[in-house]
Amino acid sequence: MVRGIRGATTVEQNEEAEILHATRELFDSIIEENGVLADDIASVLITVTTDLTAAFPAKAIRTKPGWEYVPVMCTMEIPVPGGLANCIRLLVHANTEKTQREIVHVFQKEAQRLRPDLAHVRK
Rank of each mutant, 00 (worst) to 15 (best):
E18P: 05
E77M: 10
E110N: 03
A8F: 12
A60T: 08
P79M: 11
A58P: 15
P79Y: 14
M76L: 14
L20N: 03
K123N: 03
I78A: 06
I88L: 04
E77L: 10
V2N: 10
T96N: 01
T10K: 02
N14F: 08
A119F: 12
N34M: 09
R3T: 15
L84E: 00
M76D: 12
V36N: 08
L26S: 04
R115V: 15
G83E: 04
E68F: 14
A60P: 09
A94V: 10
A55D: 01
D28E: 05
I31S: 02
L91Y: 08
I46D: 00
N14G: 07
N95P: 14
D40F: 15
L37K: 10
I61A: 03
E33Y: 15
T49D: 01
E110G: 01
F56Q: 01
E68V: 13
Y69R: 13
H93W: 08
Q108G: 05
V44F: 03
V92E: 01
T10C: 06
V2D: 09
E16P: 12
E18F: 03
L26I: 11
R62C: 08
T23F: 02
V104T: 09
G7D: 00
K59F: 14
A60R: 01
V80A: 06
E12D: 08
D40R: 13
N14C: 09
I78V: 12
G83H: 09
V121W: 09
I88D: 00
H120S: 07
H105D: 05
E77F: 11
L114A: 00
P116N: 07
K98I: 06
R113L: 09
T49R: 01
T9L: 00
D40P: 15
F27K: 00
E25L: 00
H105E: 05
V121Q: 08
Q108E: 03
V2Q: 11
T10N: 03
L26W: 04
A85I: 11
K109M: 05
I5E: 01
G66H: 12
P65C: 01
I78R: 07
S29M: 05
T50M: 14
A22C: 04
V121L: 09
A17V: 15
V92M: 08
L84M: 04
E12V: 13
F56I: 09
T9V: 03
I19T: 05
L37N: 07
P116R: 10
F27H: 01
T63M: 03
E110A: 02
T99S: 10
T50Q: 12
V80S: 07
L37Y: 10
Q13V: 07
L118W: 12
F107I: 05
A111C: 12
V44S: 00
I103A: 00
C74F: 08
E25V: 01
V92A: 05
Y69V: 14
E12S: 09
A111N: 10
C74E: 03
V48P: 06
D39N: 12
A54L: 12
A17W: 11
S29W: 03
H93Q: 05
S29E: 02
V11F: 06
T99Y: 11
L90V: 09
E25P: 04
A58V: 15
L26C: 07
H120R: 08
A111L: 13
D28C: 07
